[in-house]
Structure formats: C-alpha cells, structure tokens
Design a binder for these strands. Sequence first.
DNA 1: AACGTTGCAGCAAGCGCTTTCTGCACCCAC
DNA 2: GTGGGTGCAGAAAGCGCTTGCTGCAACGTT
Lengths: 353, 353
Amino acid sequence: MTVTLADVAARAQVSPATVSRVLNGNYPVAASTRERVLKAVDELDYVLNGPASALAAATSDLVGILVNDIADPFFGIMASAIQSEIGGPGGRAGGERLAVVCNTGGSPERELTYLTLLQRQRAAAVVLTGGAVENEPHAAAVAAKLRKLTEAGTRVVLCGRPPTPDTRAIALAFDNRGGARQLTEHLIGLGHRRLGYIAGPRERTTTRHRLEGHRDALAAAGIEDDPRRTVHGHYDRRSGYEAALELLRRDPDLTAVVAANDSVALGACAALRESGLGVPRDISVAGFDDLPFSIDAVPSLTTVRLPLAEAGARAGRIAMGREEPPPGGIATVRGELMVRGSSGVPRAERAAR
Amino acid sequence: MTVTLADVAARAQVSPATVSRVLNGNYPVAASTRERVLKAVDELDYVLNGPASALAAATSDLVGILVNDIADPFFGIMASAIQSEIGGPGGRAGGERLAVVCNTGGSPERELTYLTLLQRQRAAAVVLTGGAVENEPHAAAVAAKLRKLTEAGTRVVLCGRPPTPDTRAIALAFDNRGGARQLTEHLIGLGHRRLGYIAGPRERTTTRHRLEGHRDALAAAGIEDDPRRTVHGHYDRRSGYEAALELLRRDPDLTAVVAANDSVALGACAALRESGLGVPRDISVAGFDDLPFSIDAVPSLTTVRLPLAEAGARAGRIAMGREEPPPGGIATVRGELMVRGSSGVPRAERAAR
DNA sequence: AACGTTGCAGCAAGCGCTTTCTGCACCCAC
DNA sequence: GTGGGTGCAGAAAGCGCTTGCTGCAACGTT
C-alpha cells in the first residue's frame, strides 16, 4: 500500500541499500545511479519512513524546544529564533530537522513528561527555555533526566535558564539579577525612595533573581527594604493589575512600581491610571524583557531589554553543534536598560526644585 | 548500553511480548505479572523506544501544529489551546501524545516541507492554523499533501483557515469577512466617511477576506472605495506604523483607520500620535483579533474578538477524535465586535452637533 | 603482464518493538 | 472422566530502514 524503499529500489533497478545511500548522501554513489534513484523516488512520490530510519540509524532528526507558555511572546520569540537555527525546513541549517516546541504551561510534571517523551523519541537535541522551578525534588528529577539525555547523546541547551550542576547541559543564562539592579538603580537615581515591587511566582529562579537585583540596588542606596512593598503574582497582565492596587492600598505614597516583566508592568499601569494616578507624573513604572509591545504602550515602558532572539539563535546553533559552547558550558547573557517614558522624577523631587 | 524491552522482560522473567502488552495495556495480562513487569521497568528506568514502536505498530503519537509565526500571540494562543487538548503530558487527553508546533514563518515552502516531515514521522494528526497563501501552485501542492496525509490515516484539521476542497481535512474557518464588515459598519455608524485601510500581505486569504468585509460595508453605505485609501503591509506593528504615515500622506483628512489586525493598529496609533493626531479625538482606529494587549493600549482598541482559544481547543479535540467534526467537515467561527476607546465620532460630526 | 587500488553496488544482519498465532493450564459442564 | 471453553503467556515473524562487509569491475602501477 504505502511505498517503501524496496519499491523505489525495484523501480530504479538497484538495491535498497543504494537507495538509502542516495537519500542520505553519505556514501559514494555514481551520478547516473543517483539520478535514476531520484527519478524513481519522484515518480513513486516516496516519503521516507521516519521511525524506521530512526530505529535503524539509532538517531532521529527531532529537536525539542520546551517553553513555559507558548502564548507569551517572551517564549515565542525565543522559540522562533531557536527554530530558525535548528533548521527545520528552510532554516539556515542544511539537514532537515523537525524542530518542535512543547508547551509545559509552567508545570513541572509536564516538563518532566515532555523530556521523557523526547527521550523516547531519541531526540537529537533539546533546548529548555525560561526560568526553572526551584523545588528541590523537581529540580533533581530534571537534572537526572537531563543527565540521561546527554548520556544518550542528546545535546541539551538551557536558554535563559540557570545552569544545572552535574549535567552536561550547556547554559545561556540571562543576567536577571544584574538587569533588575540596573533598573532599580535608574529609578533611585531619579530620586525615588518608596518603590513597590511586583514579583513573579515564588519558587521560580527568574522571580528570585530579579527580586534580588532589585534589593541589591535598594541596599546599595541605603533604602530600607520594606517587605510590605513586595507583592507576588504571575507573569501576566492581570497579576500586575491586581498587585498594583494591592501595593497602593498598602502604601498610597509609592512613587514607583517595578514589575517582574512587561506584561505585569502594563497591567500595573492600567490599575494606576484607573486609580487616578498619572504615569510617570504621579508614579513611575518599569518592566522587564522589552517585548515588542512595550515600546507602544503609552507612555512607552522603561524596561530591561533581553536579547531573546539572539540568545535563542545562539542556543539553536549550539544545539545543532554549529557553534562552540561557551567555556565551562556556561555563559551569561546581559540585558540592557531601556529608559523610556514611564519613568520620571518623582513629584516631591520636582516640587523641591 | 541502553535498556530495551528484552532487558525488562528478562528481569521480570516474562517474554518481551508480555512487557509490551503491559506497557500498551491493550491485552489482558494477569495482575501479578503486570506488577512484576512494572517493577522491572521502574528499576531499570526503562524508556520505550519511540521509533521502534512506531515502526512496529505503524502509528506514532506525534501531532503536528503548523503556525505562521510563533512569536505572534495570535498563533501562540491557538497553539496553546490546541496543545492542551491534544494531551501532551498533563492535558485532558488520556494518551500521551507529543504535540509539536512547527513554525512556518509564513513561507509556503516551509509549510510544505513541514508537512512532508510530519508525513515522514507518520504523525497521528496535523492541525494547520492561520490564513493560507492564495498562490495556485502552492495551494494545489498543499491540498495534494493533505490528501495524502488523510489517506494515510492522519487526521487533518484547519483552524482559522479556509476549507481545502477535495480534501478530507476538517475546517474551522474564522468569519473574517463578516467580522471586518461589522467593524467598518460600526465606524460608518459613528459618522465616518473617509476611512483608510491597512491590509495585510497580498495573497493571504485572511487579508483578502478582511478587506472584502471592509469593502462590503463601504458599498452597503454607498461610500466610494478609493483604492488610494488602502495600503498593504505585513501583520506587524511596524507595517502599521509605516502604512499609517503613508495613508496620511495620501489623504490628511482621513477620519478613521482600520487595520488588518491589532498589532498593525497599535503601530498605526503610534504613527498617528507622532503626527500630532489624537485617537479617537482626531482620528479613530480599529484592529482585529482582540489579542490580550489590545485592551491595555491607550486608548483601548476597538476590534473584533476572535475566539482563538475556543477554536483551538475544538480543533485539538477534533484532531484527537474526541469531538465530532462539524457537518460537512466545515464550520464557521464568528468574531465579536468589541467597541472600545479608540473609535469615536469624527471631529466634523461633533462640530456639527 | 601480474598485482594492488579504487570506486561503486549488493548482501544480509540487525535496530527494538508489536502482534498474530499457537500453546498450555485450568475450569466448567455433561 | 472427557470435551470444550477461557485466560493468559510465549514464539516468531515482521515493520522499513541503515550499514559493515563482501564482491567485482576498471583502473593504475611496477
């Protein structure tokens, strides 16, 4: 029923081995023979059986990309960049690999199950993006899985995710801590002293690192870190909206709000505006990531730009073995402070001048 | 080196056949035996070899999701919904299927190659999202490919994409034409008579349908459709920015701009604002899709909400055979007009009152 | 002229699983 | 006590491909 290698071989009057070699192009085949085979392939509309060849060759052309939330452009941008380097059809890479993105939804179990599924498919490489969960048993389970994968020859790259010790995984980590620190320093430099912070979910490395950077800056400026000025939520707009209201309730005199990311910041802006506060006139707001829509917000968002596409592309190349991994298998990717319209000198400061 | 079924069988003192049956659960196995096998699986940390089982069983648990641009939330949201229904780990579905999203980048060739790759992997189902390219040879090639896929037993579902005749593909098409018409009717109802339109790329069905809806509304209101009031671009912010400037250059007296989608609309807003025009004071703007950020724009965007998540979920269920396909294999999904801050009564109209 | 070399094609042995068919107990009914 | 079920496990034949090895011309070398 379905066309097989043997059918092609028969038609081209050669052995199946020869057809296989023509298709894989890793063995000398006379030009005339090759042509005959290709003609037969074309005429029969033959499509290689992936599973069979993966089984025989003990490798596959599948590359997995794990993301926390595919509906979030933060991950979409990275995934897109990774995929374009992986090859997939038309990518820069030569071979045709099936780059597939798997949506974990931030769930540790799903993450693990996807890794198992990819292991089962004998994936050629796996790229994990985004922050990790800081839950000891889970982290250990993931580390163990990654170790197994690398041992089986699968290349593992972490993109925007902290290194996993005792694993041969390559890590390109974002300098969330440093970026957050710069951002808060910028606000402090403008004269802000009462800053609220809307953090992401607890137990995520990204959340912790950004929060630490914020606190570093406060500490360096000798500003007391009132725990009441920090609220935890999710990495989405809605969380930002609610958290901003909560912060305002706790301290109506806040002059700035730093958000865990841009979506959160935009939600916060909406809440502040609805509370009758002008941004940045009455209160400054800052985000993180610099997603495309941030520049379009009114006022445009002060934030930290993370080179998502560049990092993704690099991760993709490393996963394909087309770029040397960084020394030690670990590289830090820095962000860049983008000062825009949503941050300004606090009201009191202006009055004093 | 790697653990195989036979190893597990040896350890559990049963035949490989029994182990296979325990793992697949589609054949009676005595409880005591099953337990012994599972114990051995656990102890050896056995992971099934996907390619091998796919080869032997002539089926695989791979489900492909094709998207035009994974960095665009429009596709991200649909992909996420589809994936959650496909199962993947933790999804509602029982079986563990690997739902993979493939980024075509809007390129017809890549689309075709991905389909071949999925065919090669003997995918269980394929979901294609987003508008199709209206290029005759390409459309025919895709149709042929889809036919092959369905013939081979792969379920094919089109989500937010027009039906493909002569194919057994199920189609859930968005009513782009109707939505666009409603939107423009709304603006006309407010009193607008000089409307600019920023269209998407030519040759895409979505672009054409939305444009047709817009023109339908104009025609119904007896407004002449000046071709100079339509500019084509891409479905991104930047295009919107540039196109808006171009439209203004061509006719400074425009009172409204309708954009191909929300990102384009936001880009247009930015351009208008920078040109000194207030939205909606001087000029109204409308988008399409109602992506999450649209409500956050200032002013919030008047647009047409497309039930992306619902449609995606439904497509996913159909792909999994867990929901009956619509009669005739074709269903139309309607959008809903969302009137918000970016559209208002035109200036002249207000003055006249 | 005899003997390596080289270049290309075929043979055949798997890769690790699924599944049909066969086989063996064991139980029930007559 | 025998014949026919019934319930479970095993033997073995592939699934469609890759690849190490062998084979055989045709060529170059001394």
